[in-house]
Amino acid sequence: MLGSIDLGLIYGLMALGVYLTFRVLDFPDLTVDGSFTLGAAVTASGILAGQDPLLSTAMGTLAGAIAGLVTGLLHTKGGINPLLAGILTQIALYSVNLRIMGKANLSLLREPTLMAGLQQPVRLLGTWTSVAIFAAVALVFLVALDWFLNTDLGLALQATGDNPRMIQAQGVSIHNTKILGLSLSNALVGLCGGLIAQYQGYADIGMGIGLIIAGLASVIIGQTIITSRRFVFATAAVVLGSVVYLLVIQVALLIGLDPNDMKLMSAILVVVALLSPRLAFVQRFWARRRKRMMAAVAEGEEVRA
């Protein structure tokens, strides 16, 4: 169970990346599946080549950023539809990742990874110690992302997703903000891939398949649990969503569901979450909420949706 929390916290970084594109930029970026494996491939290859694990992880992160950059350029300068731009990069990355890894699977067993200290002499992964460490890491990144989104540049990025015409009229190139957002997002995803590879002890060419669904599910679950967008609540919700998602998967496996059905389960979960705004009882809930909020605004209170 604690192992799932470990993983949920690490995958939380990927979910933050997905949040940045899907929610903040309103850009459905499918690069994720490829950039995750890319991060893992670069990191694992670096470590196996005898490089410092921290440097290797940084390289994996950078590689993810470059993947995002490519998708951003394809979309903005090439005028390619966002979904297609992401898929093109993702597919191309499959070959690139195989080239980098040289084979379909790289083992990191007994290599000096960032997690080595947590594996030997005592195995600390899946204990409260590792949970605390990964929670601290996730906290640093979610606070940093929240801070960034509130800078001048970050506000421009948010506006790019919310009202592109307006922010252009305020002097912002939405090409630049999209490219920046995609790069940052995929840097987080690449970092996540590198960390997961070290956690599991291997990088695999198929490890990123369908990951985007897990990311989306995390974002949706998190924002259902924590609806406030004040302070760091928005980004904290995403990481929490990732942990809950991993726990749900774990429980599903425990009660005997086939691991091979997990992707189907995840997809159904996301579909239900996406459709739910159209369901009558959910609409009534939101209508009531809106009404309360409008009433509060009329009274001059400070409110954020």
Binding site: T151, L153, G171
Partner: peptide, 18 residues
Amino acid sequence: QNLAMALARGRARGLRMG
């Protein structure tokens, strides 16, 4: 936040708080 975005019009936007 909206006003901050407008205040930055015509200037380079960096990592200062909005």
